[in-house]
């Protein structure tokens, strides 16, 4: 058994194709981007080696840390939202009538591209014609906020479509994991007189713990490098109030000709994400891996 499963040729055969592809198409660009980070380069003319200067500037750049803080807030809320998605998945995966249809309906918005989602939420948030403010005014609110214009609100306002956009993704994963639990285990618990809540908490949750941990990492990593809706809906504004790390990096590299500095920020983004991920993995580490 061990001999077969530790055959070096076989391992190479199974791992190398993916590893080579990722190595060439992700790690080489990553290395190059770290290298550009050492340059004073506008991306157009000649580049000049300036050592760690860009990285030092970044560490002192308040705009960068503001954007990093915004990204961390998003990561925090994304992680929290997983609880809701998990609860919904539990309901959908239980044997209630119509669950199958409901699940499909719930996941439909996930199919929409960011272009569509951005347009939809721009219409929701429009200060005078928007759905949200029309509803608020109908409820008697005199001066409903300008959601995307107010620097104190814009960040939280824009989190809503971002979290909503990913709901389907996590529900899909949790659903598959929950459906993977052998029916016999749940039946046994029912016979022992466990309530649905007890079954969810004592049996289902521990059994999909591995999947939950993975989704926590995905939520954090995805949030820290998030870009799409921020860029389309607010462009990071007003005056940087909704800037996140990736949008800041994009602006530097593509709009303001600080390509070297932008690359350095991009690399820092990765380092920060890596550190956070390692910490999270350590915190959620479990000694034994569960098997059914």
């Amino acid at each position: 058994m061990n001999k077969v499963m530790s055959n070096k040729w076989m391992i190479a055969f199974y791992v190398l194709p993916a590893l080579i592809l990722v190595g060439i198409l992700i790690f080489i660009p990553l290395g190059l981007s770290a290298y550009y980070g050492l340059m004073d380069w506008n991306g157009i003319g000649d580049m000049e080696f300036i050592g760690m200067e860009n990285y030092i500037t970044a560490v002192q750049d308040m705009k960068f840390w503001d954007s990093a803080f915004h990204s961390f807030l998003l990561a925090f809320f994304s992680t929290l939202s997983l609880i809701v998605y998990l609860a919904i998945s539990m309901i959908l995966a239980s044997k209630i009538k119509g669950a199958d249809l409901l699940r499909k309906i719930y996941l439909i918005p996930m199919l929409l591209s960011s272009v569509a989602i951005a347009q939809l939420w721009i219409k929701v948030f429009n200060p005078s014609n928007g759905i949200l403010n029309k509803m608020l005014m109908g409820l008697g609110v005199d001066n409903p906020p300008a959601w995307l214009a107010n620097p104190d609100i814009v960040l939280y306002a824009i989190f809503i479509p971002i979290l909503w956009q990913y709901a389907g993704f996590y529900i899909l994963i949790y659903y598959a994991a929950l459906k993977n639990i052998p029916e016999s285990l749940i039946e046994a618990a029912k016979i022992d007189g466990a309530s649905p809540l007890q079954i969810a908490y004592r049996i289902k949750l521990p059994l999909i713990a591995g999947v939950v941990k993975v989704t926590i990492v995905l939520a954090i990593v995805g949030s820290l490098k998030y870009f799409d809706l921020i860029y389309v809906m607010t462009g990071g504004g007003p005056n940087g109030a909704s800037e996140v790390m990736a949008s800041y990096m994009y602006k530097l590299a593509f709009s303001t000709n600080d390509f070297g500095y932008g690359s350095a920020i991009g690399f820092l983004l990765l380092v920060i994400t890596l550190i956070v991920t390692v910490i999270v993995r350590k915190l959620t580490a479990d000694k034994e891996e569960l098997q059914y």
Binding site: I122, F125, N126, P127, S128, A146, W147, L148, A149, N150, V154, T234, G237, P238
Partner: peptide
Amino acid sequence: FNAGYNGLSDQEAKSMFMSGQ
């Protein structure tokens, strides 16, 4: 200026003008 101008795109503002708002 119209409400929430800092969060509106030029396209949205244009539409307000073009619909007589």
